[in-house]
Design a protein around this nucleic acid. Structure first.
Length: 368
DNA sequence: AATTCGGGGAG
DNA sequence: CTCCCAGAATT
């Protein structure tokens, strides 16, 4: 039997690994805003933002969010649209909706206190194993292991774990490995130490093994197989959709519609549009989809621009048209709300990242 | 157990 | 371009 798991590591070795990780962290950690505090609300907000999102992207959002919603009571009292506006551009908008919903529930049912017990906190919307472990270990010192992309990468190399990191069945292996390695006397610091090593040293590409505090124990390095970890199963290539978007002008006002709260880009506002059908020109697709989603007759005036945008599971190439309102009354088919707004008023609404690729061009257009 | 949720940075 | 990020909910 090949020696691959943490269970093959002696208790003495595990103690040494823990000490090496935490010592390295003490000397080398980055100063990050959410490390200046152990306030559970602050930790919670930071960890939600950090899901699938890189540290440098989060910093400014984190500061702005806490500036606007300094504690759980401010957040609970806020309008959903204001929370989304604060989240605009960060992506995965269900995170914001769930955080907001959880804050409201705790204020209504728990005097605004964040539960320090696993079961009570874990069942809140948007709180999975990772967030629960993060808040409970960092803010409350509870011994739960955090298992994120960094941790899985570090552990997969350290113990030569061949389970693919992006397969759901592998999760229990990594969680169990992390649990056995966890330093229960300082769980928050230990968890962050592993993640920081993953972010700074044990990087996805070109890991800096020379600087690694646990290189003495790294099975992948010993086998000269570091580049072979973590094991990952390939994703199928994503499809590309051609779309048409209509900026419908009536006088100086433009029509925007709001997407349903569930589903992709939930609650955000956008210009109406749709997917081009095969053999259909972009302009006629624009007129057709505007008719289908808001029931208006429009005349295509000009093509503003073409944008490309990549989502996780598909790509979009969209032609954006300036349209003149010609007739009809708004009858929504899909959107949950609509609004006629001046171009300069667009900034008050949370819009998808794709729209920010053409709104500057829109604002410079003289006919608006 | 796989898929669906954004967007951006690094190479 | 491709990969992947301090994941959770849904199917």
């Amino acid at each position: 039997m090949e020696k691959t798991g943490v269970s093959e590591t002696s208790k003495k070795e595990r103690r040494a690994i823990r000490k090496a990780l935490v010592s390295w962290f003490t000397a080398n950690q980055r100063r990050l805003p959410w490390r200046e505090t152990t306030d559970p609300y602050h930790v919670w907000v930071s960890e939600v933002m950090l899901q699938q999102t890189q540290v440098n992207t989060v910093i400014s959002y984190y500061k702005r969010f806490l500036d606007q919603f300094p504690d759980i009571f401010y957040l609970a009292a806020a309008d959903a649209q204001d929370v989304l506006k604060c989240w605009e551009g960060l992506g995965y908008y269900a995170r914001a909706r769930n955080l907001h919903s959880a804050a409201r529930r705790l204020v209504a049912e728990n005097q605004g206190r964040i539960p320090c017990e696993w079961a009570a906190f874990r069942k809140l919307p948007g709180v999975g194993d990772y967030i629960a472990s993060a808040v409970l270990s960092i803010a409350f010192g509870k011994p739960y292991p955090m298992v994120d992309g960094n941790v899985k990468r570090v552990l997969s190399r350290l113990f030569a774990i061949n389970a693919p990191v992006n397969r759901s069945a592998s999760y229990r292996i990594f969680r169990e490995t992390a649990r056995m390695l966890l330093d229960k006397t300082i769980p928050g610091r230990f968890n962050q130490a592993v993640m920081e090593v993953g972010a700074i040293v044990c990087k996805p590409r070109r890991p800096d093994c020379d600087a690694c505090p646990v290189r003495r124990w790294c099975r992948a390095l010993a086998d000269d197989r570091v580049a072979g970890y973590p094991v990952r199963i390939k994703r199928t290539p994503v499809p590309e959709y051609r779309m048409a978007i209509g900026v419908v002008a009536k006088g100086r006002k433009l029509l925007i519609v709001q997407r349903p709260y569930d589903g992709m880009l939930g609650g955000l506002w956008e210009f109406p549009g749709g997917v081009r059908q095969s053999g259909e020109s972009a302009a006629s697709a624009c007129a057709r989809s505007v008719g289908e989603t808001v029931g208006l007759e429009v005349e295509i005036e000009s093509r503003l621009t073409r944008i490309r945008h990549a989502y996780t599971h598909f790509k979009v190439v969209a032609d954006v048209f300036l349209c003149r309102y010609r007739g009809g009354r708004v009858r929504r088919n899909g959107p949950i709300a609509h609004q006629w707004v001046l171009a300069k008023g667009l900034s008050r609404y949370p819009l998808p990242g794709s729209h920010h690729k053409f709104i500057p061009a829109l604002l410079e257009n003289r006919s608006i």
